[in-house]
Design a protein around this nucleic acid. Structure first.
Length: 271
DNA sequence: ATCGCCTCCTGCGCGC
DNA sequence: TGCGCGCAGGAGGCGA
């Protein structure tokens, strides 16, 4: 479920409860996530959390310069701050008990997420080192975007969803950014004009920033760490709107499959 | 190097 | 009401 705005929203939600707090204990109720939950995280008794940051869709819980827990929410993961009295839900796999008396619970029905202990430079960890620039950061320039695209034969939608191009652009926002830029999702990345790529670059940034401002997109079950939904769904122009009229031209929104993922677009607005 | 396909897993909504 | 099917916000890993 979580795309970058949802992960960012999650970070902002848990940060005030975790930073400068001690993790008293971690209970692993189910260790079989995408990779087995690192045994080392169980030993994090009475360790102080220095910071909560995000890189791509990874959440980094920092204990020291060389000690982090790296979490990913996969398709269906969420982190929730709970009172210890609240009953556990099915699929609450990890329970972090905090020094302030609260708990942070990692919930993930499909178990595509992970919780890994990283001892060493976290940014050079295997899963991190090949990541492209942050879409909202200064390194993601329109020049970089243009240069990377040249010679690419892949559909532009799959290309912007590839982590080495730019991180954090998932299925919803890829569809939305392409709609905003008026580009057909199947067009070869290397054949989109410089001007249209500049537009796409800008739209990727604006759609992600706007969604973060609205607290992310709640499709069916994404909730903030405090249990509130995100409000960006109302603003989706094409995603999950097959057969509905385009707000700009009245044509029917189409659905195709690209790289095994549902892809929504307006056949008239997007060329 | 690049690309496309497969996979992990549970839950939900649909049509019969 | 029940069953089987297809589909779901990710992304690493594989073979071609």
């Amino acid at each position: 479920m979580p795309e970058l705005p949802e992960v960012e929203t999650t970070c902002r939600g848990i940060r005030p409860h975790l930073e400068a707090q001690t993790i008293l204990s971690i209970e692993v109720r189910n260790e079989s996530l995408r990779w087995p939950v690192s045994e080392e995280i169980i030993q994090l008794m009475n360790r102080l959390v220095i910071s909560i940051t995000r890189r791509a869709k990874y959440i980094l819980i920092k204990f020291s310069d060389h000690e982090h827990i790296l979490m990913h929410l996969g398709m269906s993961g969420s982190l929730r701050i709970s009172d210890p009295d609240e009953p556990l839900r099915k699929h609450d796999h990890l329970i972090f008990s905090l020094g302030n008396g609260l708990q942070m619970r990692y919930h993930d029905p499909r178990r595509f997420g992970c919780a890994l202990w990283v001892d060493g430079d976290v940014h050079h960890y295997k899963l991190m080192e090949k990541l492209g620039p942050e879409p909202l950061g200064d390194d993601f320039t329109r020049d970089y975007f243009y240069q990377q695209s040249r010679g690419r034969d892949t559909a532009v939608k799959q290309w912007i969803m590839t982590n080495s191009t730019v991180v954090g652009v998932g299925n919803i926002y890829a569809c939305e950014a392409l709609k905003m830029a008026g580009i057909h999702p199947k067009r070869a990345a290397g054949k989109v004009s410089k001007a249209r790529l500049a537009s796409l670059h800008e739209k990727i940034r604006t759609v992600l920033q706007r969604s973060i401002d609205q607290g992310g997109t709640t499709l069916k079950d994404f909730l903030h760490s405090d249990g509130q939904p995100g409000y960006f769904k109302q603003q989706l122009a094409v995603y999950d709107r097959e057969g509905q009229p385009c707000a700009d031209c009245d044509s029917m929104i189409k659905r195709i499959v690209l790289g095994q993922r549902s892809t929504f677009y307006c056949p008239k607005c997007q060329k």
